[in-house]
């Protein structure tokens, strides 16, 4: 029925020029434990910035390390947050990391289309297909990042799959390593059980402390979070329209997360932002 569009770019909308999600359908879950068969940089110095930010780094040889990626959106999904952040922090480089290849393709196309229709904008965002649970240190140096986002991660309800959760006590060591002092981890979920889990992991980790309420209120990112991501938007929709969810839950189609606890009563987002303290606050090594 859409044959008449085929002569342009069939997967892109004719009016906006943006890629359309229906052509990038992907499974909601991906196994982070399986062996990866996509290229991974051997070390952070081998991340080719000219591929990701061609306007800022015209050729691979010109990369002098003067500017490096500051924000990482881990499990960026369809890239909604990246795109909102791009204009709020035009001077910061950011990257989305996503395991599902079709979704990564979509984000890539979306960014390219946005760059084409808004010259000079969206040059500071990019996306990479990777397994961030395994390869975070391959992309970032020690203390490189200022913000990391873990928004609506796969909840992995089964206890046997808890080790697949992207926030866990041991992986936080690696996140603390790539974050600089004072860097912030943003987590967000609509699954209460996962929220409690993430909060307890962060609370139990000696290298993180909670962000104060004042800091939270002053942070421009926090306001974005509930509106920018696709999952967050779904929740806004949910709060505006009083779905009396019966057995056919309307928002269970794309993200797996909403299905289980999203029975309409979860009005507030479980949200935690936590803080990476200066290392001198730690007990000194003997």
């Amino acid at each position: 029925m859409m044959e008449h569009e085929a002569n342009a770019n069939p997967s892109h909308s004719k009016t906006t020029g943006l890629p359309r999600k229906r052509f990038y359908r992907a499974r909601a879950h991906s196994n982070p434990l399986s062996d990866s068969h996509f290229p991974i940089p051997v070390s952070p110095s081998q991340v080719d910035y000219s591929v990701h930010y061609p306007q800022l780094f015209p050729s691979p040889d010109k990369f002098d390390g003067s500017k490096s990626i500051e924000f990482a959106d881990v499990g960026c999904g369809f890239g909604g947050l990246l795109i909102s952040l791009s204009t709020v922090f035009p001077e910061s480089l950011m990257i989305g990391m996503e395991l599902r290849d079709k979704v990564t393709e979509y984000v890539k196309e979306r960014i390219l289309a946005l760059r084409a229709s808004n010259p000079g904008q969206y040059e500071n965002i990019s996306v990479v297909r990777t397994n961030s649970m395994k390869y975070i240190p391959n992309y970032f140096e020690k203390g490189q990042l200022t913000k990391m986002f873990f928004l609506f991660p796969d909840p992995h309800f089964k206890e046997k799959n808890h080790r697949r959760r992207v926030i866990n006590l041991h992986l936080l060591d690696e996140y603390a390593y790539v974050l600089r002092e004072g860097g912030i981890i943003y987590t967000m979920t609509d699954v209460e059980e996962l929220g409690v889990w993430m909060n307890s992991c962060l609370k139990g980790h000696p290298l993180f402390e909670a962000v104060t309420k004042e800091e939270l209120e002053a942070d421009p990112v926090v306001k974005l979070l509930s509106t920018a991501t696709e999952e967050g938007q779904k929740w806004r929709m949910l709060n505006l329209v009083p779905w009396n969810s019966g057995p056919s839950c309307p928002f269970g189609q794309e993200g797996g997360g909403a299905k289980k606890d999203g029975n309409g009563e979860g009005k507030e987002l479980v949200e935690f932002s936590l803080h990476f303290p200066p290392l001198e606050h730690l007990p000194p090594f003997p």
Partner: peptide, 8 residues
């Protein structure tokens, strides 16, 4: 918890 470095 404190990672000193990764040798990559």
């Amino acid at each position: 918890h404190e990672i000193q470095s990764f040798c990559l």
